[in-house]
Design a protein around this nucleic acid. Structure first.
Lengths: 215, 215
DNA sequence: TGCAACGTCGTGAAATTTTCCCGGCCTTGG
DNA sequence: CCAAGGCCGGGAAAATTTCACGACGTTGCA
C-alpha cells in the first residue's frame, strides 16, 4: 500500500459485516481501511483522531445512530466524505441521510461492484446513490406519499414523535403543557395531513420514512 | 481442504455480508463453503442439490423469508442443520426460528468467535443460542409480555394479521364474512389479551414479536 | 404600516368507535 | 351429558375522533 492510498473508516455494528467490507475493499487497489467502529459515538471519535478520506457508515446501530453520526461528523468537518451503506431500501432514510450530509447512499443488497463504484465516486467528489434507491425515490414522488417532515409543522411533528413513542394523549398533553384536547386535535390533523386513516397506517408510514426506527 | 470438511450453504440477501461470512469461516479449518443463496427459494433449491452439512441462514430476505425457508428445508430433510444468523435481537424471532426447526440462533452483533462456536456446536448436534438472545428470552419471560401466537386464538390471530396489513374494520369483516361489530369486538379483545392500550403499541409489539416484518 | 397567512391552542357538539356485558351456537374432552 | 371455551354479534354506556369555529401571536410582504 502506498502512502497515497485513500484511507477509510468502516462503521457497522455487525463485526462479520465489517469483515465483508474489508474483504471487498481490499481487492481494490488504492484503498486502505485504517479503522473500524461499531457505533456512532466511536465513529465520531475515530474520525477526529484518524481523519480518514472516507467513512462508510451503517445506519441502524445502538446508541447514536448513523444519521446522527453523519450530522456530528459533518459538523466537525464540513468536508467529510461519508457514504451510507445500509439495509434500508426506502427513500425516507436516503433523504434523511443526504440531508444530514452524507455524500452517498448504497443498499446492502447491491452487488459489491456497486459499493466499490460508489466509494470511488464519493472519493472523486460525486454524489453516489444506488439504482434501487433512485427507483424508490422516483416511486415515492409518483405515489405522492406525503413526507411527514415536510408537511407537518414543528409542533405536529413533535406530537407525532411522542405518539409513536407509545405515550397516551394525556401524557403528551402533560409533557407539552397543553390540553389533552389539543393533542387529540393535532393527532387527528396529523393523520389527515399524512393521508392515513388509522394509527396502524400511521406507524407503518413512520417506519417507512425513518421517523420511527427502534421497536 | 480435505474431503471430510463440513460443507456449508450461506444464505443472505446482502452479498457483502456473505463475503464476511466466508472470510470468517475460511480461517476455521474443517469448514468449507460450497454454495451461496440470496433468498429463501434459492436456498431451498440449493439445499436439495448440494446437501450441505450446515446452512447459515439470514431471516429478513425478499420473497420467502428465512423462517419459511427453514420450515421448507426441514420438511424436505428432517435432519437438516440450520443455524440462523440475523440482525434481529428480539426473542420473538428466535422462538419462531427454533420452532420452525432451526438448530441455532446467533445475532450479527455477536463477535466472529461466537458465530464460529455456534457453527461447531450445531455441527456437533447441539442447539446454539447467542448470549444476547438468551438474555432477551429471560427478560421477555420476566416482563411477562404475552406472546401473541400463544395467547390468541386462531381467529384472533387472523384478525390481528389483517389489522396490521392496514385493512379497515369493514374490509376485514368483508373478507371474513362476519359483522363489522365482531371485528371491532375482536380488535378490542386482542388489545386486552396482549396488554396494550393503543393501536400504536399493538403495531410495535407485533414488530418485536416478528408478526409484522415488512413495512 | 397594515393585513393576509399561518401556526398554535382551545371549546363545543356531533359522529364514530371502543369497551363492556350479555346470550346463543358450536365443538371438544371428560 | 355437562363443562369449558372458541366464535359470533346485539345493546348501551363510555370514550375518542372529527369538524367547525374563534382567539392570539408571529411572519412576511405589498
Amino acid at each position: 500500500m502506498s502512502a497515497a492510498d485513500a484511507t477509510i473508516l468502516l462503521v457497522d455494528d455487525h463485526s462479520v459485516v465489517r469483515e465483508g467490507y474489508r474483504s471487498v475493499l481490499q481487492k481494490q487497489p488504492g484503498l486502505r481501511v485504517i479503522a473500524e467502529a461499531a457505533d456512532g459515538a466511536e465513529a465520531y471519535r475515530l474520525f477526529k483522531s484518524e481523519a480518514p478520506d472516507l467513512v462508510i457508515m451503517d445506519l441502524s446501530m445502538p446508541g447514536i445512530g448513523g444519521i446522527e453520526a453523519v450530522r456530528r461528523i459533518r459538523q466537525w468537518d464540513k468536508g467529510a466524505r461519508i457514504l451510507v451503506f445500509t439495509m434500508h431500501e426506502n427513500a425516507g432514510f436516503a433523504v434523511q441521510a443526504i440531508r444530514a450530509g452524507a455524500r452517498g447512499y448504497v443498499t446492502k443488497t447491491s452487488p459489491p461492484e456497486t459499493l466499490v463504484r460508489a466509494v470511488m465516486d464519493v472519493l472523486a467528489g460525486k454524489i453516489a446513490i444506488s439504482p434501487d434507491i433512485d427507483h424508490e425515490l422516483a416511486l415515492s414522488r409518483i405515489s405522492g406519499e406525503s413526507s411527514a417532515a415536510d408537511v407537518l409543522t414543528p409542533r405536529e411533528f413533535e406530537v407525532l414523535r411522542l405518539l409513536l413513542a407509545e405515550n397516551t394523549t394525556e401524557e403528551i398533553a402533560e409533557t407539552l403543557h397543553v390540553s389533552p384536547k389539543t393533542v387529540a386535535n393535532l393527532h387527528s390533523l396529523i393523520k389527515d395531513k399524512l393521508g392515513v386513516g388509522s394509527d396502524i397506517e400511521l406507524v407503518r408510514l413512520a417506519l417507512r420514512q425513518g421517523i420511527l426506527t427502534e421497536v
